[in-house]
């Protein structure tokens, strides 16, 4: 398998995640799109490891996975605490800092 194709798939997934972040309004779905972007970066790291015949890319992907788990825990608790005070998960609703 040509690693170039895997990199193209990773690019497509990354762009879909980025577009999702821009067009969706639900904070939870936006967070899922961020996870998709992290996953596409992981896929790229794994395909680099395969292309260059060294395992460092896989170690990096492993660390990305751990950081993503920590990020999800904190991010979801932020979403829940915003929901507790504002009763919404829409990213348009918290606008107290707007003039």
């Amino acid at each position: 398998m040509n690693p170039e194709m895997v990199a193209l798939l990773a690019a497509v997934l990354f762009v879909l995640g980025a577009v999702g972040v821009l067009i969706r309004r639900n904070a939870l779905v936006i967070f899922m799109c961020v996870e998709l972007m992290l996953n596409s970066a992981n896929l790229l790291l794994v395909s680099f490891a395969y292309a260059h015949g060294s395992l460092d890319g896989q170690v990096a992907a492993f660390f990305v996975m751990v950081v993503a788990a920590a990020e999800v825990v904190v991010g979801l608790s932020i979403i829940v605490s915003v929901y507790r005070s504002r009763r919404t998960t829409s990213v348009d609703a918290p606008d107290l800092l707007k003039l």
Partner: peptide, 26 residues
């Protein structure tokens, strides 16, 4: 959506030709 298409174009141009033709394998 336009920004997404543009980013995809940039990424594809960056990717094409930047990999070794034959993967070393693990």
């Amino acid at each position: 959506i336009l920004a997404g298409i543009g980013t995809l174009g940039l990424l594809v141009f960056a990717i094409l030709g930047s990999f070794p033709a034959q993967a070393v394998g693990l």
